[in-house]
């Protein structure tokens, strides 16, 4: 593991030079924030509030440390915050409805010997899982769309709001495609062992469709996709408002 880490660091520094140090620093902060999140939740702090605060810290680091242009960073940060709120608003009722929290019967072997009275709310944790899952994708999408749009607006300051939205969608189209691919392939990566186990348990189709673990994976992927989709109009709107103010 240590060797693997060293290989990564050496390659990173070779390719990116001194910029790699900033990158490693950013990653380090993110990992520390995540560990803080784990410890706080395990110590009994409210899951949703803790997640919200840590997610904000993570977004600040992910956006402001990777983007040099302050204008782009501000818009992207605002967008990500709005999207995070929207995701929370969608996820809370959905998770309550689907009750796809915690672990399933498929995990039984893993759970042996554990005290299951954990004293923390797994339904809330399920919401927090979806929010954390979306952080990277959301920040990347908003940065990519904002910087693409800002470049267009700066070159042609006379754009009408309609044109800004149209440009937003033409930039957004490609990003939407690649981000759904990322989400979909990650869904493949996590679920193929699950489907294999489900097969060996002899589930019927209806049982797979209602299975807790399958449903929670599908919901995670779909809700993250909703976040990516909504990033496009929200970014376009924010960029348009900013361009309007200048005139």
């Amino acid at each position: 593991m240590l060797y693997l880490f060293l290989t990564f660091v050496v390659l990173l520094l070779m390719v990116t030079g001194t910029r790699g140090l900033t990158l490693l620093f950013g990653l380090g902060i993110n990992i520390v924030s995540v560990i803080a999140l784990l410890i706080l939740i395990a110590d009994g702090f409210n899951v949703l509030i803790t997640t919200g605060i840590i997610a904000m810290v993570i977004l600040v680091v992910a956006i402001y440390m990777n983007v040099d242009n302050a204008n782009t960073a501000n818009t992207a940060f605002k967008t990500s915050l709005i999207i995070m709120l929207v995701i929370l608003l969608i996820t809370i009722p959905l998770e309550f409805w689907a009750s796809a929290q915690g672990m399933g019967i498929e995990n039984q072997d893993e759970l042996e010997g554990f005290s299951l009275a954990a004293g923390l709310s797994y339904p809330e944790l399920a919401i927090s899982i979806i929010v954390i899952n979306s952080l990277g994708v959301i920040s990347e999408t908003s940065v990519a769309i904002t910087s693409g749009l800002n470049e267009i607006v700066e070159n042609k300051p006379t754009l009408t709001p309609q044109e800004i939205f149209d440009d937003g969608f033409s930039v957004g189209n490609k990003i939407l495609n690649t981000q759904t691919n990322t989400l979909l392939f990650n869904f493949f990566a996590t679920t193929f062992p699950l489907f294999f186990v489900i097969h060996s348990l002899g589930y019927k189709f209806s049982e797979i469709l209602n299975d807790k673990l399958v449903v929670s994976e599908v919901l995670t992927t779909l809700i993250c996709t909703i976040g990516v989709i909504l990033t496009v109009p929200i970014t376009s709107y924010l960029v348009y408002r900013k361009a309007n103010k200048k005139i």
């Binding site: 784990l38 954390i132 990277g136």
Partner: peptide, 27 residues
């Protein structure tokens, strides 16, 4: 591009394991 892309996978990996991690910690 490197930073944001690693971030995407970092958060996906963490989120995936959150349930088990907290089970271990609370035990």
């Amino acid at each position: 591009l490197i930073g944001p892309l690693i971030n995407i996978l970092l958060f996906i990996v963490i989120a995936e394991n959150l349930n088990v991690v907290l089970l271990y910690l609370s035990n």
